[in-house]
């Protein structure tokens, strides 16, 4: 079952098309990464989902409900962290939690305190005295305290130190294992690699990829290092499934564009001293998607 469905959703700002005919299904219980360069249309899409912007055309729904018409009902089960998080400067962490609890009509003191311990945040400090990272933690706590079915996070790790980034990733994984759906936007490829089941990539408002991360891995180039025995000259031309980046004496560093079987078969005919094949390099793949000049 899809928790989020976008059907040919387009959003324009005047003549500028921010998101162009975006169709997307986010499965229930998935960790869905929403990637793209700055200005790619990620935040606009999230704002449409939150009912802050209206789609120019097409449809967007969460839990099967239209995001514009049923926005308050939908948001009862959604936790949202904005990309450019701004909080009420005069409130302390405790007061912010109480305010959100009052509006949600729930008691959130206990889960709020528990999350604050998890993220090592002192809730007695006023927001105006908090650092950016502390405010981000408070934003995460406010988004997750009511145990939502769907979590929408716009670049959640920005401002967090590596320890807290890891804590958040662990937390989001545990939420997904409990059946919650996590939809988050990010620039960070390592974050996506660590966390996601599914990935969608937007470039200039257009969806250029949307698939399971495992499928992407099979298509991602692997780094290969070939070293020939002393006295043996490497061939003049590389085979078509290898893209050579550097040639140093007897050693080639390349990206493998085809299957490992082809490589092993070809390597068997070479007089090699060493052969190593790295993990699928998603970064190279993502860069190709991000790159304006290339079609994926």
């Amino acid at each position: 079952m899809s928790i989020i469905t976008l059907d040919n959703m387009t959003r324009c700002y005047g003549s500028n098309v921010a998101v162009n005919s975006l169709s997307l299904d986010v499965p229930e219980g998935s960790l869905f990464g929403f990637l793209g360069p700055n200005g790619g249309g990620k935040t606009t899409t999230i704002r449409v989902l939150l009912g802050l912007l209206r789609a120019t055309s097409g449809a967007a729904s969460i839990f099967g409900l239209n995001v514009w018409k049923h926005s308050p009902r939908i948001k009862a089960d959604v936790g949202y962290l904005p990309g450019d998080l701004r909080l009420y400067p005069w409130l302390t962490g405790h007061q912010a939690i109480r305010m959100v609890a009052g509006i949600r009509g729930m008691t959130l003191e206990k889960p709020g305190r528990s999350l604050a311990e998890r993220y090592a945040l002192d809730l007695s400090i006023p927001v105006r005295r908090m650092s950016r990272g502390m405010r981000q933690k408070l934003g995460i706590i406010l988004a997750l305290a009511h145990d939502p079915k769907l979590v929408i996070l716009d670049e959640p790790t920005s401002g967090l130190d590596p320890l807290m980034q890891a804590a958040l990733i662990t937390h989001l994984r545990s939420l997904a294992m409990e059946g919650r759906t996590v939809f988050f936007s990010s620039h960070s490829l390592s974050e996506v690699e660590q966390l996601c089941h599914h990935v969608a990539i937007l470039r200039r408002g257009t969806l250029v990829a949307c698939e399971a991360l495992s499928d992407l891995r099979t298509r991602a180039a692997r780094e290969v290092m070939l070293t020939w025995k002393p006295g043996v000259s490497p061939p003049a031309d590389a085979p078509p499934f290898l893209r050579v980046h550097t040639r140093e004496d007897r050693t080639w560093r390349c990206s493998m564009m085809g299957s490992a079987v082809e490589l092993v078969r070809w390597a068997g005919a070479q007089d090699l001293e060493d052969l190593s094949i790295g993990e699928p390099d998603l970064e190279v793949l993502f860069r190709r998607y991000y790159d304006e000049g290339e079609t994926p």
Binding site: S71, D84, R86, G139
Partner: peptide, 17 residues
């Protein structure tokens, strides 16, 4: 203007309310 509308309308409230 302050940017807090995102947090406020991220909660289950209608704009009319």
């Amino acid at each position: 203007d302050r940017g807090t509308i995102d947090i406020l309308l991220g909660l289950p409230v209608s704009r009319v309310a």
